[in-house]
Computed example of a mutant assay.
Amino acid sequence: MKRIVDGYFNLLKFIIAACLAMMVILVFGNVVLRYAFNTGISVSEELSRWFFVWLTFLGAIIGLREYGHLGVDMLVSRLAPTGKKACLIASQLLMLYATWLFLQGSWQQTVINLDVMAPASGLSMGIFYGVGVVFSVSAGLILFYDLYRVVSGKLSEAELVMVKESEELAEVEELQKELDEQERHAHATDSRR
Score class of each variant (00 low, 15 high):
K2C: 06
I4T: 12
V5N: 01
F9S: 10
F9E: 05
N10Y: 08
L11K: 02
L12V: 14
K13A: 12
K13N: 11
I15H: 08
I15C: 10
A17W: 13
A17L: 15
A17F: 13
C19M: 14
L20W: 04
A21D: 06
M22A: 14
M23S: 15
V24N: 07
I25V: 15
L26K: 00
L26D: 05
F28R: 11
F28G: 15
G29K: 09
G29L: 13
G29Q: 09
N30T: 08
V31E: 09
V32Y: 14
V32N: 12
L33K: 02
L33E: 01
R34E: 14
A36W: 12
A36T: 14
G40N: 07
S44I: 01
E45Y: 13
R49S: 13
F52C: 15
L55A: 14
L55G: 12
I61K: 05
R65I: 03
G68M: 06
H69M: 06
L70A: 10
G71W: 11
G71K: 09
M74R: 10
R78C: 05
R78N: 11
T82E: 14
K85N: 11
L88H: 14
S91A: 11
L94D: 06
L96F: 08
Y97M: 10
T99Y: 01
T99F: 00
F102S: 12
Q109G: 06
T110V: 00
V111R: 05
N113P: 05
D115W: 02
V116K: 06
P119K: 02
P119V: 13
A120G: 01
A120T: 03
G122H: 04
L123H: 04
M125F: 07
M125S: 03
I127L: 13
Y129T: 09
Y129S: 09
G130N: 07
G132N: 04
V133H: 03
V134Y: 00
F135N: 03
S136N: 07
L141S: 04
F144N: 02
D146C: 04
D146I: 00
Y148T: 00
K154H: 06
E157G: 09
A158R: 14
V161N: 00
V161A: 01
E167M: 11
E167S: 09
A170I: 02
A170K: 08
V172E: 01
E174P: 00
L175N: 07
Q176G: 04
K177L: 02
E181C: 01
E181F: 06
Q182V: 11
E183N: 01
E183F: 05
R184N: 02
H185N: 04
A188H: 08
T189K: 10
D190Y: 11
S191K: 05
R192V: 07
R193P: 00
